[in-house]
Amino acid sequence: MPAEANSPAVAVEGLHKSYGAVPALRGVSFTMPRGGVFAYLGPNGAGKTTTINILCGLLRPDSGRVTVCGLEVSQEPVKVKARIGVVPDESNLYPELSCRRNLDYLGELYGLSRGVRRARVGELLGLFSLADRAEMPFRALSRGLKRRLVLAAAMVHAPEVLFLDEPTIGLDVPSARALRQLIRRINQEGTTVFLTTHNLAEAEELAERVCILIQGRVVAMGSPGEIRGRVERGTYLRLGLSGEVTARELLSACPAVKEARPQNGLWRLEVEALHPALAQSLAFAEARRLLVNDVGVERPTLEEAFLAILQQGQPPEVGQR
């Protein structure tokens, strides 16, 4: 087994890149293990696309070391490109070619033999629900179908690592959802996914690790749970009761509840610890012979954590390797 088989999918160390006098990346370092989904987040101009372009061998860094699948990108860009797939933020297949011919042509450039190509193209057209549009030119597809074909094109050579740059941008809800399901399926089948997105719910849904970049620096890295844990606000319990109670009654009966506020006919309880607060609330309802008609937990979302980190500017890094 080659040494690179055990290497991380992506390892970046001290990456610097400037455009003239404008710095885009200032010492970016991170490691992306194999097998998972890694979300690379940041506001516009943070340096996400510059990072992807460097990782894909399209751009040379000013300094720093980048390896993909154990291969040094600056030394072996062609070998790296053979092992990765890229879905850029624009749907840039050949407009005049049919869906099938687009996939076949890219398969040819990735070195697949005619027989393998034919089978793979058929398989992808089926998997991405494009079989009935196989002979349709790319330009005639809807935006959602174009994104689907671009994703299929990135998978034509079964890459080890898939880079997705804003994969669901501009898609309607059903198309975006269908694409996310495909991404999850691709990942479950063994492809490591590097995802950049402005849709933080998408990142939260798909990613096991998140890296947040601000002004060319990594400011936070960890699991979505670790990132969410950085938000200073607490956990909220949503509670619906069948009769009238006051906040004072709730607070005196439930010591684990810090604050109680009525909201849209429900109670929104800020709690210190979820389990005792829930137990106390249920006991309170039982004692008052009230029915619980709604209950739920509201945790800080990744989006709230992201915004908090943005507001803080450049907080100390967490969970960074």
């Binding site: 894909c56 399209l58 062609v78 070998k79 490109k81 053979a82 890229v86 850029p88 624009e90 840039n92 297949l93 050949y94 890219l106 450039l109 990735y110 070195g111 094109a153």
Partner: peptide, 11 residues
């Protein structure tokens, strides 16, 4: 944008 697509392949 198709040149970028081409540049992403191992050529």
């Amino acid at each position: 944008g198709t040149l970028r697509r081409l540049l992403l392949t191992p050529v």
